[in-house]
Design a protein around this nucleic acid. Structure first.
Ligand code: MN
Ligand code: MN
Ligand code: ZN
Ligand code: ZN
Lengths: 138, 138
DNA sequence: ATAGTTTTTGCAAATTATTTGCATTTGAAT
DNA sequence: ATTCAAATGCAAATAATTTGCAAAAACTAT
């Protein structure tokens, strides 16, 4: 089911670029530029943070990647588009992807009401995860 | 229908704080800290940007205000909670609030599937507004 | 109203994520 | 292999936001 992720036409296949995309593919939810930096460093790769930012930028502009900010955070996260709708636990920060985003069903309604052509959306839902409900009782 | 907006218990009623809240009440959609600064300056008020940031911070922590980042932007916006679900036009930047957010209907579904207690959500939908559809044809 | 106490403000300096300039390296095409 | 534009790394620059601290304003209790 995983869509084949290709470097956009016209851009070069550098090892840095490919490595960044691999990390994004493996990620389960939106991550920080620095997370990519650290994971690549773990993997023994020496890469510059600015290279990561520059690539995330171009991937975002090309529509391959989605940039977002999580509740209460002040630094951007990046993810493949299928990971952009999620639940966040306010207590522990756990993130769970919403697979079949129910919002899709409402596109028509929004189109009718507001007349927009809708090209995308992103949904952040926050609350308390099952584990934290048990633990943090009082 | 407009909820009465009160400065939280324990905080002082300063003219800066009240002025910031007024601007947020009048705003039709999420705005930048600096927008508040400029509007107050227009109104003849001399206020410090850091005062604005500090107040937005506390109002956000107290739950009176919601902080968000719009697609492609790199600075935070602030709004009263009833203005946090919106449509944005990718061409002209127009923002339209989604009044009866259809997402509410899916809380139950999400609760059942993921077991989260849901406390809130924010939805950003992007697309092209009616005007831009006409204008930017080719 | 006055005086005492605590919060809030303003300003300047600090911080932090992100961006940019530029010399060097690399990918891809011939 | 040669060529040339695109991409990288590093250091320096930006820009939004935060913070320290002394002065001012809001409350409280006289
Ligand atoms: Mn991180
Ligand atoms: Mn603005
Ligand atoms: Zn949790
Ligand atoms: Zn428009």
């Amino acid at each position: 089911m995983a869509e084949k992720l290709e470097i956009p036409k016209g851009y070069r296949h550098t090892k840095q670029r490919k490595a960044i995309l691999e990390i994004l593919e493996k990620a389960e939810f939106p991550i920080h530029a620095e997370d990519i930096y650290l994971k690549l460093k773990e993997n023994g790769m020496d890469i510059s943070l600015s290279t990561i930012y520059r690539n995330l930028d171009m991937l975002t502009k090309e529509g391959l990647v989605v940039k977002s900010y999580m509740l209460g955070e002040d630094k951007a996260r990046f993810a493949l588009p299928d990971k952009k709708n999620y639940l966040v636990c306010e207590k522990c920060g756990k993130i769970v992807i919403i697979d079949n985003c129910p919002f899709d069903k409402f596109k028509e309604e929004l189109v009718e009401v507001h007349g927009f052509d809708i090209t995308g959306h992103s949904v952040e839902v926050y609350g308390v995860c099952p584990e934290c409900k048990k633990t943090n009782v009082g």
